[in-house]
Design a binder for these strands. Structure first.
Lengths: 245, 245
DNA sequence: TATAGTTGTCTACATTAATAGACATTTCGG
DNA sequence: CCGAAATGTCTATTAATGTAGACAACTATA
């Protein structure tokens, strides 16, 4: 692994942020597992070729995320290093997939509504543009940390009580079951990565400049009829997507 | 699509870069397809709540990427908007997957070498740590634009001529075939998104601050024996990963 | 209890990013 | 041909980022 650490100037991304990203990556790679600590500020400053104060800004940002904690005289300890591994397969479900990686998972309803299907939604669900859809906006968390936020669309004609069922059952799988759909599979997933926008920063409690992975997915019933069109944004520094074929 | 455009200050990411990223996203989303032009600078400045000069910096960065071109008196024209859709399935291969999206694809060998397998490589290939591996570093391009750079490891005992075969055939699939492996399948893919490091910026000709999607994958022969461990970094703003299950 | 090694804090200054305004230049339509 | 609308260029100012150095405060260990 060469992966030479280097930062670039005049890029529109502050040095301290680039360095914070690189240190975060090193932590999640386990580079510092032997000591459980980040190297001393002076050493990091030397590695990156910047002033110690710049490194301190980077570490302050990571401390702010709760990833590290500095102790005067001792060093900067690593508090947390996990990335949740999130499986994507034909049977993708949020909570089951995480398994024992988190003690507690939660899906919180942010908004619900009924609206005519826009072009991409109608195409994904194979319904007429303008046909009524139920939209659910969720934030999913593991052990109290937001992992993803999603917007899902369901054809109203087939699942008229989707919003109400979800509110009671707190699970899309169960809400489907309550409306007579015992099983469903993932038929399509498209992934894109980009910087988080303001609403995502707030929902996922990200530090600004963070990256999200946007997964646009379609679930269908066993006969192949689409039942859900969703757009899920994952906090990129908290997850690893594991594709199972 | 609400996707409210908003930028944040004091985040370590310059406003002009955040705005450039948002405009790039709008372009690839087709938001400006009606006119084929980006909205006027004054309009964008109003939407984002920044000074016109800041918008100009963002547009200059996009012009530098060749994405737009400003013409005095007329406006800023969109030059290019595509994202390549890159399939990931059990039969993932680079050039076939792109199909007719690009007229020409190329895989260029950057470096080759033999080295003992590090921990993660050995684990992925199911060989003893320290056993000799052949490493190939590639950059793959479509129509002359770099799309991904990758580092692959192959067990030397089974594919001793991997590097030489690739140099002749310019294809990993063909190099496998030349060494008696007619078919192979993808058994594992893990995805992570992060900021590009300096070497990736150079290899992929990205503008600094850009995002890469890192796919760590294992290919195996029909009997399930791993034959290739690879880490591919995609230029996130040029690709969409389409997962086929 | 020294002492080396570490983080914390402070001051000063240079560079980059962003704002503000004015005006020139070019294009296009009435 | 004029004027509206758009980009191009310039100056000036403020805020954020990065560098540099010095020293205080704390921790662990010899």
């Amino acid at each position: 692994m060469n992966a030479k650490k280097a930062v670039e100037r005049q890029t529109g991304v502050a040095l301290w942020r680039q360095i914070a990203d690189l240190i975060r990556l090193s932590i999640s790679n386990g580079d510092y597992d032997q000591t459980g600590m980040v190297p001393p500020e002076t050493v990091l400053a030397g590695q990156f070729g910047v002033n110690r104060h710049t490194v301190r800004s980077a570490l302050a940002a990571l401390a702010d995320e709760g990833l590290v904690q500095a102790i005067q005289g001792r060093g900067t300890m690593i508090q947390r290093k996990e990335r949740l591994s999130f499986p994507i397969s034909r049977r993708t479900r949020f909570s089951q997939g995480l398994g024992d990686q988190a003690r507690e998972t939660e899906a919180k309803l942010l908004a619900k509504g009924t609206l005519p299907a826009a072009g991409d939604v109608a195409k994904g669900l194979k319904i007429d543009p303008g046909a009524p859809c139920i939209q659910l906006d969720l934030v999913s968390s593991a052990d109290g940390r937001p992992v993803s936020c999603s917007t899902s669309f369901f054809p109203q004609s087939r699942f008229p009580a989707m919003a109400e069922q979800f509110e009671q059952l707190h699970s899309i799988t169960k809400a489907f079951a309550a409306q007579g759909l015992a099983d469903y599979v993932r038929v399509s997933t498209e992934l894109v990565a980009r910087h988080a926008d303001a609403s995502e920063l707030a929902l996922l409690r990200l530090s600004p400049g963070a990256i999200v992975i946007e997964a646009t997915a379609i679930n269908a019933d066993p006969d192949g009829v689409p039942v859900q069109f969703s757009r899920t944004r994952f906090a990129a520094d908290r997850v690893k997507l594991k594709i199972e074929t």
